[in-house]
Computed example of a mutant assay.
Amino acid sequence: MTNRITEASPLYYSRVAGFGLLLMAILAMFSNFSVLEGLIIPDDAATTATNIITNEMLFRSGFTSFIIVLILDVLVAWALYVLLRPVNKNLAMLAAWFRLVYTAIFGIALYNFLNVLQLLSGAKYLTVFTTDQLHAQLMLLIHAFNNGWLIGLVFFGFHLLVLGYLIIKSGGYIPRIIGIFLILASAGYLIDSIAHFLLPNYADYKTIFLLVVAIPGVIGELSLAFWLLIKGVKVQ
């Protein structure tokens, strides 16, 4: 009976990690495209405020999706640690900590979205600020969210780097090609973050950096999610 439970454990954690990664991707895409891309206009505070006020439930739904993503990030960090602990316990723990630090930073950044709702819907704020001041405060909160998320992605990039290395060194525990794509995605996240920090004209190259992040990131992270969910892991 004990052996049967032991044999089932890697498959169980594989399903948890795979399901968490897949659901996380779906929710993050919804929040990103419906809220960040759909409602927020970077250079137009007035339109952004109008979009959020007239689509308040959509904005709240996007915020809620991000909260669920935070919870899933913790579950995925735990499940991946258990799965990759046999490869190298210390590195598996390091990968988990990098993801947890990213999750904590993202959660703090997400707090700014709550302030956006309070700013736009609270009557007392409308009497304190002029319209221009209200719009300036709104964009300040949105920029604070973006900057916090950007800092968090540095830690997420290192998480993918360690995770990819563990997969490559696992000897077929998980296909090595997935590990290679995760390392490429890690490089993409780190390059994009450094470019944000160093290039004052980052917007001129935004599309290029987006492709550098998106292509290996989507392939690597979704491949890992589907493989864990469908195939599971090989117990050596």
Rank of each mutant, 00 (worst) to 15 (best):
S193P: 01
N55Y: 06
A45F: 04
T64I: 14
V212F: 10
F209G: 11
S61F: 11
L80Q: 08
A8S: 15
R176G: 15
V116L: 11
F30H: 09
I40L: 08
Q118T: 10
W78Y: 13
A136D: 08
H143A: 14
T131L: 15
L27I: 06
I52W: 00
A92D: 09
A109I: 07
A45I: 03
N32R: 11
G157N: 05
F106R: 00
F19S: 13
D204K: 09
Y165W: 14
G232D: 12
L228H: 05
T47H: 04
I208F: 15
A92N: 14
T130D: 14
K169S: 12
S170Q: 05
I183V: 15
F209H: 12
F19W: 07
M93Y: 12
L36I: 12
Y111C: 10
N51L: 06
D43S: 13
G157R: 00
E37F: 08
L39C: 06
G152P: 03
V35Q: 03
D43L: 06
I41N: 03
A8D: 15
W149I: 10
I151H: 06
E7P: 03
Y125R: 00
L134Y: 06
G188F: 01
A77G: 06
A96T: 04
G20P: 02
M1P: 11
T131C: 05
G188L: 02
L224F: 04
T6P: 00
L21G: 06
Y173V: 02
M139C: 09
R99A: 02
D73G: 05
F19L: 14
L160Y: 02
L117T: 11
V212W: 11
V212A: 11
L100G: 01
S34E: 07
V76M: 02
L91R: 11
S170R: 03
L229P: 04
F129H: 12
G171P: 10
W149M: 10
L222Y: 06
F33H: 11
I168V: 06
N201L: 07
G164N: 05
W78A: 07
S65H: 03
L166N: 01
Y173H: 11
I208N: 04
Y111N: 04
L75T: 03
G217D: 09
H159F: 10
T2G: 12
V128Q: 07
G152V: 01
L11N: 13
V128R: 08
Y12K: 11
K231H: 14
A8C: 10
L110H: 13
F33A: 10
